[in-house]
Computed example of a mutant assay.
Amino acid sequence: MSTGLAGRSVVVTGASSGIGRAAALAFAAEGARVLVADLDAGGAAEVVTEITDKGGSAVAVTGDLSEQAVVDEVVATAVERFGGVDVLVNNAGIMDRMSALADVTDAEWERVIRVNLTAPFLLTRAVLPHMLAAGRGAIVSTASEAGLRGSAAGAAYTASKHGVVGLTKSLAVMYRAKGIRANAIAPGGTRTGIVVQPDPSAHGPAALGPHFVNVGRLAEPEEQAAAIVFLASDAASNVNGVVLPVDDGWSAV
């Protein structure tokens, strides 16, 4: 079955590196027009150049996606340049310090929740009117193994990714009659640029240590991107509300 992505407008957040970069390139390879959204202006520009050098169509918007003004710019640019938003990939995210709940600072909690959960909420809310007007749309979010269990990250990150799972399922139910699908991937360990800097003497890392067994091999970003593109494509036209582990079987252990 064709992916049906040629000519479609796709917004990918966190697209300057890692899973987001791989997804942006994969969508472009399918003929989609890609808006690369990221805080890293230089990295975003490099991805746009890589796409356009291969004959594709791409544009970058940079800024903090947890800020409404940046969200508004992302959507306005996609509408102006590409005529709308057919696919939204909520991929941008940050890690916590593996902190146990009693050790989470206000700053850590608020920043992780803001980037990992509030930003996808703001972006999804902003694109929904355009998808509803078009009578179709696909939203794919990057959740995590931490959205499926309590032993894969600290309290803030775990709560944020459980929130992404809930947001995805709510969207799927609320808008399925409107032609809009919402799904998520739940990556296991993946080779990306995200660095975790826990305090090894803190309770959280000490408690989590024994749980990081049977996690499987590290995935390449392209393997996560392939799942994202599938869920956004016409090949997954009846797939809605799914949280797909891409984790070499870690979630099955």
Rank of each mutant, 00 (worst) to 15 (best):
S2Q: 13
G4N: 07
L5M: 11
L5T: 05
L5H: 09
L5P: 02
L5R: 12
A6T: 11
V10K: 03
V11D: 00
V12Y: 09
T13I: 03
G14Y: 03
G14N: 05
S16G: 11
G18L: 08
G18Q: 05
A23N: 13
A23K: 12
A24D: 10
L25P: 05
F27D: 04
F27Q: 02
A28S: 11
R33D: 14
V34M: 06
A37G: 14
D38W: 06
D38G: 07
G43R: 08
A45E: 15
V47E: 05
V48N: 13
V48Q: 13
T49F: 11
K54V: 14
V59F: 06
A60I: 10
A60D: 00
S66T: 13
S66M: 07
V71E: 11
E73N: 15
E73Y: 12
T77C: 02
T77E: 12
F82A: 02
G84K: 13
V85K: 06
V87H: 14
L88K: 06
L88W: 10
N91T: 05
N91F: 00
A92P: 09
G93R: 08
G93P: 00
I94E: 07
I94C: 01
M95P: 13
M98N: 14
A100Y: 11
L101G: 12
A102G: 15
D103A: 15
T105V: 02
T105K: 08
E108Y: 03
W109E: 10
E110G: 05
R114K: 13
T118N: 15
A119S: 15
P120N: 08
L122C: 04
T124R: 06
R125L: 08
V127C: 11
L128H: 09
P129C: 11
L132A: 05
L132P: 01
A133V: 01
A133Q: 13
A134N: 06
A134T: 09
G137Y: 07
A138C: 11
I139D: 03
V140T: 05
S144N: 06
S144Y: 01
A146V: 00
L148T: 04
G150N: 04
S151D: 15
G154Y: 09
A155P: 01
A156I: 03
A156V: 02
Y157N: 02
A159E: 04
S160K: 09
K161G: 02
T168C: 09
L171G: 04
M174W: 14
A177N: 12
A177V: 11
G179I: 10
I180P: 05
I185F: 00
I185S: 02
G188N: 03
G188W: 00
T192F: 07
I194C: 08
I194Q: 14
V196G: 04
Q197K: 15
Q197P: 06
D199S: 04
H203V: 14
G204T: 09
A206G: 03
A207P: 00
F212Q: 08
N214F: 01
L218C: 08
P221A: 02
E222F: 10
E223N: 00
L231K: 02
S237C: 08
N238H: 14
N240K: 10
N240E: 07
N240H: 07
G241D: 03
V243G: 00
V243H: 07
V246R: 02
V246T: 06
G249P: 00
V253P: 00
